[in-house]
Amino acid sequence: MVFRPSLRWALLVTSLAVAGLATYLLFAGAPPRLPRARIPSAISIARTTARPEGGHLVAGRPRLASTDPASLHDWLVEVTDQAGAPVSGCRLTFAASMPEHGHGVPTEPRVLGEEGKGRYLVGGVRFSMPGTWVVTVKLWGCGAPQRVDFDVRF
């Protein structure tokens, strides 16, 4: 059977159109490549205990913004009084646990010293898995003893 030229042209044009669409889907239409390495974890920190009457304001966060919560890192705990002035000379402990699983961190974080007035450096923090952790800072020796809990999610 012999095709008439007009039909051949129609077939050729159709083939080219399909090939073009396929090329588009193959290259332009491909979804962006997903990150293959560990997904950087954003860490969110929220204080969950209210400040007691006359108590200090206690804030805590990893020392470096780029910290991977799953690797060993330091925290800064900042203590200020009601007037917003930094409070020196506090004693404090730092502990973390994961209520959903009933376990703590694999390390024993401890205060390394006061890095600037009212800024306490805590070393040896490492969260062993993503999820919701409760960080508990207990404070004494600089006013009434105080306990502050933070929800830490990453």
Binding site: L72, P106, T107, R110, G123
Partner: peptide, 9 residues
């Protein structure tokens, strides 16, 4: 650090 801050619980 891992050894220094290792838990002993």
């Amino acid at each position: 650090g891992e050894l220094t801050f290792m838990s002993s619980d």
